[in-house]
Computed example of a mutant assay.
Amino acid sequence: MPSLQTTSLRIADNRLFILDQQALPQEKRWLSADTVDELVGHIHALRVRGAPLIGLSASLLLALLAERGANRDELAMALETLRAARPTAVNLMNNLDRMKQALAQEEYAQTLMAEALHLIEEDKQLCDNIAQAGSSLVKAGSRLLTHCNTGGLATAGVGTALGVIALAHQQGKVANVWVDETRPLLQGGRLTAWELGELGVPYQLITDSMAASLMAKGQVDAVWVGADRIAANGDVANKIGTYSLAVLAKFHNVPFYVAAPQTTLDPHCPNGDAIPIEQRSQAEVTGVSGSFGAVQWAPTDAQVYNPAFDVTPAALISAWVLDSGIVTPADVANGIFQPG
């Protein structure tokens, strides 16, 4: 496979490496993701994260395994193991469905490689298209609020919601970005703040509980978020806390936009109730650990509810910004996300 480099993925010497998103922003550390067990471990630990990036990394690994001589049965088993690594993010399933079709071809090793590389280039173009469509919705002097991380760290391109914000900034329309820290692993505080700083976009970091007071004071002009899955009725699964923002935005008459590529659509999922929600470790809530060591602030026997995602009903969404363009609530009501 040819060498490849994106913000968070690297192919070098026919090996796959991922940028450790647990180490950012203090350290840019590349880790081997060269076996199925390694990559699944990175996905579970959120060292590699972001719905598009997870699907792309799994696709690249399958292509590399095929190039090294793995047979069809071994690749099929690897594919299903990778598919189960992250149940909520449908990009993983959609990408692996395309890799499964490639695996069925006679010259499957070459076909898998071509498809994986095509998915990378496709994602870059999807991101550019989303940014172009979404930036048209950003008004001059906007103060925008975003949740979790949706930039180049989470995709092969410029990102989804953060790609919109970056392009709108280049167009001179962004006065400030409010960055939710995003519990429980602080992807906003660690990753989005870092990306915006690298891009030169003015931002202020806030805790997740501050959004309501900002909206009440008229300090938020729009909310921009990504998505891990969009159901056929327009309901959206995204990082926990997104639903809260949508409710607040509705109450305060603030537009709430979802930016995502076509690979995030799941037309066979009827609504948000049918989206599986991943439950994560109690330790992410009861304390914190890092290079500095570990701190436990909750009682050792504290019981924890820690879903990774929540579901925002379509009724709370002002528009869905896809690579194909802007989708309105009327479009969704007319079944635009339904199976064709």
Rank of each mutant, 00 (worst) to 15 (best):
Q171G: 10
R49M: 03
R72E: 09
R68V: 01
M77F: 11
T88V: 05
Q125I: 08
P52Y: 02
A12K: 13
V327M: 11
G293P: 06
I326F: 09
T192G: 08
L112R: 07
L205Q: 02
H118R: 14
K124A: 13
G335W: 05
Q22E: 12
G189A: 15
N95W: 01
I130K: 05
A319E: 01
G241Q: 00
I130F: 06
T35I: 07
P270F: 07
A76P: 04
P25V: 02
G188I: 00
T155H: 01
T35S: 15
G335Q: 08
K217A: 14
A45C: 11
A114E: 13
E121N: 13
I130R: 05
T242R: 02
D221P: 06
E115N: 10
N14Q: 15
E27D: 13
L191E: 06
I326V: 15
Q132Y: 11
Q171I: 07
M215N: 01
P255E: 05
R98I: 05
T263H: 09
S281N: 13
N306K: 05
Q170R: 15
D97K: 12
V295W: 14
D37R: 14
F309T: 01
P270V: 11
A131I: 10
L265T: 03
M93H: 15
W194Q: 07
K100F: 06
L117M: 12
T263L: 03
A333C: 10
V90C: 09
N149M: 03
I11E: 01
A45E: 12
L199C: 05
L103E: 03
Q204D: 07
D273V: 10
K139W: 10
Q170S: 14
V332Q: 06
A154T: 01
Q303T: 11
G287M: 11
Q262A: 13
G293W: 13
D128C: 11
V48L: 08
E121D: 14
A294T: 14
V220S: 01
L24R: 13
G152F: 05
P255H: 08
P25T: 01
V48N: 11
A175Y: 06
V36D: 04
V90W: 00
G172C: 10
L196G: 01
K124R: 15
Y305A: 13
G134T: 03
L56T: 00
M215P: 01
D20M: 07
S32N: 10
V295Q: 07
R10P: 04
K124M: 14
